[in-house]
Every structure is written in structure tokens, then in C-alpha cells.
Design a protein around this nucleic acid. Structure first.
Lengths: 343, 343
DNA sequence: TCATCTTCCCAAAGCGCTTTGGATTTCACT
DNA sequence: AGTGAAATCCAAAGCGCTTTGGGAAGATGA
């Protein structure tokens, strides 16, 4: 069923039917009702393609997921973020189109999306330090919004980010307050902007507490369970082991816990752990009282909000780019406690 | 830059340029070269929208992700599956469009996708027992392929599935061979088809070994870490605790391990564990030698293959629906060992 | 040399929608 | 009754592409 057939069956012109369906005023209430009922009865939906051609809009948002060619990692965060964004899109009648793409091709992909007029805007995932994509997109003139930020690029652009720096500074402060001094950081890859900022927060707190930054207490890598485990085991075996560990991901934190327990130590007593928690739906941090003390910020919420921001920017391109900094909550769980006294 | 402009700048008709670019034979090699170079220089890409309108193809595949309204779970598998499928799509010039959708709206979504001619086919995720979507799609006449199967629907349709039944039967057999008799199953939600089949495999092995099925040894739920932990703790506290546990997800298996170790037991010695491992990129099961003995099958591969199948079906609709049953490998790791002797 | 194929290219129609620029009817008001 | 405005509706153009149905030139064979 297409417009032509529908309008013929109603004895009206395509113009009138189109207008009736799109809420234009030049059509009588009675006719509009009649049209709407028929459209419903025939289960008529306008072709996105044709509509897009006629209006010049795509009614679609692109998500470009970089798949670093070296480490074929899909970000575990991704599913929840997408779920949040998807909600927003369907509420606004937009579609989400996804491109999984090797790092190298990204430039082409953006240009392709733009010149094929496939999307009205894009979401940028996983920004790195000095990420070249942002400059590229600004030049392309394709509306975009970034999940995170890219240190080193100073033109304004739309982003939404967790305040990673303050979250990790606060978490470190919290551990200092508990009496810990040797505090380790098990971080994500520090080319990633978020990981860089977390380290800054950590370092700032150390500095504020007159504690030297000890490279032996810092790890950076792909945030798997095994990575958390190995890092922790290594550090606990040194003769100057940490009494507290800051961890960038709940998945790695599971490995951290394993290493601690394997050594016969008790988490929250012998070694305290604070982790960042993205509130992923399939990885809940315990029940009402969290297992891990955590800096918490819902990635799904972030998806929802960032999508709103992008749609708003598309609706009114004259608006200055929005920026949103979310503060993570510090939730105290069972994994932290006072620093053990030296006997 | 559009076709018209490009052809004008070349002094050719749109017809010729279009044909040159699409590999039709009615154009001289010299002209084709000239056209291709110009297209490249101007970074010309045909509008997907217009192309789709003209050809009647969408050049897009829809993925509809059900988000059960009760438990707002995003399947952790999802990211990796999508990554695999995305690879295939971009290789074939297709786009992937994603709809995150509450269970109730699914029917509408499929009809909408069909009548808006937004996609050439869809992938069905997370089939449940007697899943109504399959019948619906067969009636709609929208090409589709299912990741998994739906017991209870007996018309032929295209699917790709891991042989969950044989995998879990084999894993259970393996534990029997090691001398275990009290073998527990920590399964996913058994409305999900895959979980149902896994239980069948488990039960079949018990039956073959003349061992009664004990409901006290079976758990079914959302496969989180905490679920694995609680289930295991409960069972280990009973006076007739299992000596081996079969687990449906690596995430839950982490919780299983935690419960075992918390009780002062050693995994692989006091309690053996076999888990299913979807080979998720962010959740690796150890290094060369896996930590967990596991039935292993890559979800990303599944994505790749299922996408191929769907594209093939779209390319030639007369083909009978393909079915693919993947066998999981049983990888022996450190988490299994002979049953402890009763002292 | 003329008729007949090939080869290479083009004009125009059509995909399903929106939107512009009227045309017709109705109505209120002089 | 006559007039202008308001209310409804419509025909046709246009979005950017593919594809049908030729047509002009050059190559081939008798």
C-alpha cells in the first residue's frame, strides 16, 4: 500500500492525504479523520526512503563503532549505551544505523555517511586523546555528539561525559581518609580519554596528600577480568604491596577480587577496592548494598541523554553545542575498609 | 555532489555515468575509467535513499533487540554478535539498522519495518520457546534469520544455532567420566530456547547415567555474576552439595567461583565447574589454557555467518531456508578435576 | 558500396513521497 | 445580490537515482 493507492481508495488527491497524515492545517477535521482511519485500516506507513528523498532528511542517526584493528575488542559498555540511545530515537521517530569499522576506515565512513546522506548526525564512541575524528567531523559539517571528550581539541563541540577526573580523585581521597597510603590504579588503556582523566584524578589526590606517584602501583590495559587478576597478583606479590586498589571497570574488579582472595586475603579488610561501575544491566554490583565500593554512573542514561542532545542540535542547528558533565556517585559497599595497621 | 552534477562536469549523461559506476557493460573502458576517476576526485557517493527508491532495495538489514519490559537486561552477547554481523554487512555494502524495542511492540515494529520498506530483511535475537515472532515473520513475507531456534514452531525457517543440547550433554558426560554424580545446573532463563535446550542435554546425560534429576541442583535465572554466586552458595550449603556445577554463562561462572572460594574450597579440586563460553572479546576465559573448562562457541562468528545466510536468502529468495548447527568445542581448563573421594 | 551488426551513448519515465502554486467552494458581510 | 476572505482540495514539479527503449557512429561482411 502506497500513498497513491491509499488516496485513490479514498477518492482524494495524494496532496490531501499526505497533508492529513502529517498534520497540516489545510485539511478539514472530517477528512483528516477519514484519512487516518483508512491509513490505519490498510496499515499504511510511508516509505522512509521516499520521504527522506523528498524532505532531504534521513531521520536516522549513525553510530560508528571503532574496532581497533589490533585488539578486536568490543566495548562491553556498548550494548547498554545503545539501548539508552535507541529508546530516545524511537520516541522521536528516528532510526539508528550502526557501522562497525576498523580504525583506519573511520574517516571514509564519516565522509560516506555524509555524502550518501544516510544519516542526519552521528554519535562518536570511545574518544581517544587528541582524537582526530572530532576535527574531521567539524569540518565535514555533519552534526555529531561525542560520548566522552577528547583532550587536546579545543574548538567547541557537543559532548556528554562523566566527570572521570573528579570521580577518581574523590575515590582516592576516600581511600586516604580510610588511612590508606599505598593506593594502586588499575586503569583502562590510557590512550582512551576517559582513562587518562581518571589517572589525572588519581594523581591529583596523591599530590594533595603529599604522596609520591609510584609507577609500580599503576597498570593500564584492556579492561578484562584476567587483566585485573594479573595486575593485582603482581602487585600483591611485591614487598611493598598496595593496601587499596582503584579499578576502572567492574569486570576487571572481579579479577582483582579473585587475586586478593586467592592470596588468602580479605577484600575490604586486608585490601580495599574501589571500582568504577557503569551500571551495566548484565553486570550488577550486588543488590541494595553494593559489593564493591564504586564510582557509579549509568551508561544507559548517558545514551539516552546524548541522543537527546544530538536530536536537539539537528532540530535547531543554530544552537551552540551543548556540553554535559555528569557527576558519578560514590557508593560505599563492602570492598573498602580502614587501612590495616602495620604490625 | 550528485549524479546530475557529476555527469554534467564530465559532459556525459546520467545514464552513462550511472552505468559506468555500477559495472554495466554498455560503456567503454576508457569512459568508465574517466568516470571512476572523477567520482573519486569529487568524492561522489550515490544517495542511499534515491538508490533504494529506484531499485526497490533497502540495502539494509534490521536487528530488533527485544528489551523485556520486566527485566531491563541488555544481553551481554549482543555487542559481539553485532560486531560479527556488521563486518559481513559492510563487506556487502549493506547497512545495519537497530531497533531497541519493548517486547510488546515487537509485532508492530516488524510490520513497520516491512511496510516502510526500511530493510530487506531482519535478524531475530533471543528466541524464546514457542516464539510468536517466527510465525509472524513468515506470514509477513519479510526475509529473516534467527540467532538460535524456537522449539515448538515446526515450519522451516532460517536459523543458526549452537548445538546447546549436545554441548551440555557432552559436558555433563565429561563430569560423570571424572566421577562426579551430584552435578548442578545453573542455567539461564528457561523461557529462552537456548536455556531450555541446555537443560535437555543435561537431563539426557543424567538419564543415560541412571542418575535422578534433582530439582535442588537446578537453578534458572538472569545470568549475572550475583546469580551465579547466590545459586552456588545456596547449593554448597546444603547437606548434599554438588561436587560439580554446569553453568550457562561465563559471567555467572565468575560468581560460581567466588562462592566456591569464599567457602574455602578449591575450584577444580573440591568442586568442578564447566561453563559455556561465548568467546566474548571483553570476557576472555584466561589465556592459552582456559581457566574454566568450557563449551565454547564464538558469538562473533555466529554473527558473521548468520548475516551471510540472510544476505544469501535475500539475493535468491527461491532458495530453501538454510539451517546451521554449530558444535561447541569442549575446552578443558583448570576448573575441572576428578570427583573428590568421600572420606 | 550498401546493408547489418556492434558499440557506445542518451532522453525520458518512474520509484513514493512532499510541497508549491493555484482552483474551487463556502461563508460572512456589506 | 455581490464581494472578498477563508477553507478545502488538487495537479504537477521535484528529490537523486536506475532502467527502458532507442539512436548515431563505427566496424564488418558480401
Amino acid at each position: 500500500m502506497n500513498l497513491k493507492e491509499l488516496s485513490q481508495s479514498l477518492g482524494l488527491s495524494q496532496t490531501t492525504v499526505s497533508r492529513a497524515l502529517n498534520g497540516y492545517p489545510e485539511v478539514s477535521p472530517a477528512t483528516r479523520r477519514r484519512v487516518e482511519e483508512a491509513a490505519n485500516a490498510f496499515n499504511y506507513h510511508p516509505s522512509t526512503r521516499a520521504k527522506g528523498l523528498a524532505t532531504g532528511q534521513a531521520l536516522a542517526i549513525g553510530h560508528v563503532i571503532p574496532l581497533s584493528s589490533k585488539h578486536e575488542m568490543v566495548n562491553p559498555i556498548f550494548g547498554d549505551f545503545i539501548a539508552g540511545a535507541g529508546e530516545t530515537y524511537s520516541r522521536h521517530g528516528y532510526e539508528m544505523i550502526l557501522s562497525i569499522v576498523a580504525d583506519a576506515d573511520e574517516r571514509q565512513i564519516y565522509q560516506g555517511l555524509k555524502s550518501r546522506r544516510a544519516v542526519d548526525g552521528v554519535i562518536v564512541h570511545g574518544p581517544r586523546m587528541d582524537d582526530p575524528r572530532i576535527g574531521l567531523l567539524n569540518n565535514l559539517g555533519l552534526p555529531f555528539a561525542v560520548h566522552g571528550r577528547a583532550s587536546g581539541y579545543d574548538q567547541p563541540y557537543a559532548w556528554l561525559d562523566v566527570n572521570n577526573r573528579s570521580a577518581f580523585q574523590r575515590a582516592t581521597d576516600f581511600l586516604f581518609d580510610l588511612g590508606h597510603v599505598r593506593i594502586a590504579l588499575i586503569n583502562g588503556l590510557e590512550v582512551m580519554d576517559f582513562a587518562h582523566r581518571r589517572r589525572e584524578g588519581y594523581s591529583a589526590s596523591l599530590l594533595a596528600h603529599n604522596t609520591p606517584v609510584d609507577p609500580a602501583l599503576m597498570r593500564s590495559g584492556e579492561m578484562t577480568e584476567v587483566f585485573g587478576y594479573h595486575s593485582t597478583r603482581d602487585m600483591l606479590e611485591s614487598n611493598n604491596a598496595p593496601t587499596a586498589i582503584l579499578c576502572s571497570s567492574l569486570i576487571s574488579a572481579l579479577g582483582v577480587r579473585r587475586a586478593i582472595e586467592e592470596k588468602g586475603l580479605v577484600m575490604g579488610k586486608d585490601v580495599s577496592v574501589v571500582t568504577h561501575d557503569d551500571a551495566l544491566s548484565y553486570l550488577q554490583n550486588g543488590g541494595d548494598v553494593p559489593i564493591f565500593t564504586a564510582t557509579r554512573s549509568s551508561v544507559r542514561d548517558a545514551g539516552r541523554k546524548l541522543a537527546e542532545m544530538l536530536l536537539a542540535a539537528i532540530a535547531d542547528p543554530t544552537l551552540p553545542p551543548q556540553q554535559h558533565l555528569l557527576e558519578a556517585e560514590l557508593m560505599v559497599g563492602f570492598s573498602t575498609g580502614p587501612a590495616p595497621r602495620k604490625d
